[in-house]
Amino acid sequence: MVVIDEKDVDLLRRSGVSADDIDHCVKVARKSLEIAERCGGNMDMKLVARGALFHDLGKAITHGITHGKIGAELGRKLGLPAAVTDIMEKHIRGGLTPAEAQALGLPVKDYALSNIVEKVVIYADRLVDIIYDGVVQLKNERDAEDRFIEILRTYPQYGKNEITLNRYIGYHEEIQALMKGNPCQHM
């Protein structure tokens, strides 16, 4: 079982990420690892853990829309692997198209997610926000998954806009299908 490396948590701290943001990143890493395990565990679990843990590194500088881009730049300077910095850069709204990036003032390029690890991290990030923000009344953590589509459609802060909402729903459906194909899904 892959665990979150305390050296990585310390690197977030030394990079200036706030205690609240580190707490969020640790929760996303734990949720990402749980989801990856429920999908069969056939992913690079170290990448899952590190990508999730570092996804908000850019919040050491800004909580704005550029935190993904800035985080990836910081990550490259810190020597993080490209697969980790890709997750950091692409996680904004779950992978922007060039047109969306331009509209948001980001460098114009395709931020589409290219693998299941990236999708698991983005999915876990949405779930952690839903579970811990206190906006939605939940029975338990699994309730956030069971009601994911309804929650995103009801609370715009989670779905953002129609394009992003549909992207998140697609990841939810893909990941839930992987979980259902795994006999250990109820762990």
Rank of each mutant, 00 (worst) to 15 (best):
G75F: 01
H63V: 06
L57V: 05
Y171P: 12
R126M: 09
A99G: 08
I87R: 06
K27C: 01
N115F: 04
P107H: 03
E173Y: 02
L127S: 04
K90E: 05
P107N: 06
I116R: 15
L57P: 06
E34L: 11
I122C: 14
L74M: 15
H91Q: 15
V128F: 01
V84T: 12
S15H: 04
V17P: 10
R147N: 15
L178M: 09
V117P: 07
L127H: 06
H67K: 05
L127Y: 04
T97M: 00
L33A: 07
K180L: 07
C184H: 08
A82F: 00
M179L: 05
L96D: 13
A52Y: 02
K77L: 07
P107D: 10
K90D: 09
G94Q: 12
G170W: 00
T85A: 03
G75E: 07
I131S: 03
K77W: 00
D133K: 03
I65V: 14
N166L: 02
I122Q: 12
V121R: 02
A144S: 12
L127C: 09
H24Q: 07
G94C: 10
I175P: 13
D146A: 08
H91I: 12
G71V: 07
D56E: 06
E100Y: 01
T85D: 06
I116H: 14
A103V: 02
G64Q: 09
D56R: 05
Y171Q: 09
D44T: 10
D129R: 13
L127M: 11
V26F: 07
E118R: 03
H24G: 02
H172I: 05
D143F: 01
I122Y: 10
V128R: 05
M179E: 14
L104S: 10
L106Q: 11
I169G: 13
G95W: 00
S18N: 09
G41P: 11
Y171R: 03
R142V: 04
L74R: 07
G75S: 06
N140D: 15
V9K: 06
H55T: 11
E6R: 07
F148D: 12
A72N: 02
E89Q: 09
R147L: 05
D86N: 11
T66K: 13
A49S: 09
